[in-house]
């Protein structure tokens, strides 16, 4: 099953390497990883999506917690949460296709952020499955390039991951 693990991490050199190294050395899977500083410059917030049986996920969270630089972590998929990913996708848009692509982008609430005579660059935000649905709708033939940020997530309601 897919899990979203959200980590509050000391914003120190080497901390990211320790997290990534842990996944590599213990053969855990990373599907996406995002990291950036928080409003408190001493802390980074990292979101990792991973898949595995419950026993492995439990080990992942425990092993992460053992890293000295990990301040706190939560498996967001254990409760209600919001997850978002941002994608920039460059697609062929010439002739009759242009209108069709624009319409599809609108349906997915995407924005066209750059235009040339033959190309649209579309920005799309949403959960992973929404981005994938968009890719499928556009079809592989007109996609020139995609870039995705990976998932960021946060718990719904009053729960927070903070010091």
């Amino acid at each position: 099953m897919r899990h979203i693990i959200s980590i509050l991490l000391e914003n120190e050199p080497g901390a990211l390497a320790r997290v990534v190294g842990l996944f590599a050395q213990r053969s855990y899977n990373i599907e996406t990883l995002t990291v950036a500083p928080t409003e408190d410059p001493t802390l980074s917030r990292m979101t990792i999506t991973t898949t595995g049986p419950d026993r492995v996920i439990e080990q992942i969270t425990k092993q992460l917690n053992k890293l000295i630089e990990v301040v706190k972590l939560v498996d967001l998929t254990e409760g209600a949460h919001v997850e978002r990913e941002l994608m920039l996708i460059k697609v062929k848009a010439a002739g009759a296709q242009r209108a069709e692509i624009k319409r599809t982008a609108d349906i997915f609430r995407g924005q066209i952020v750059d235009v040339t005579a033959n190309v649209y660059t579309i920005q799309l935000t949403g959960a992973t499955d929404k981005l994938e649905a968009f890719i499928e709708s556009i079809g592989p033939n007109c996609i020139l390039e995609t870039v995705r940020t990976g998932v960021s997530g946060i718990a719904r309601g009053e729960k927070t991951l903070s010091l």
Binding site: P13, G14, A17, R18, G21, Q25, I68
Partner: peptide
């Protein structure tokens, strides 16, 4: 050394 020893230390400092 920080990198080489990373998987076999409890922690390391530079």
């Amino acid at each position: 050394m920080m990198g080489i020893s990373r998987p076999i230390v409890k922690h390391s400092f530079s």
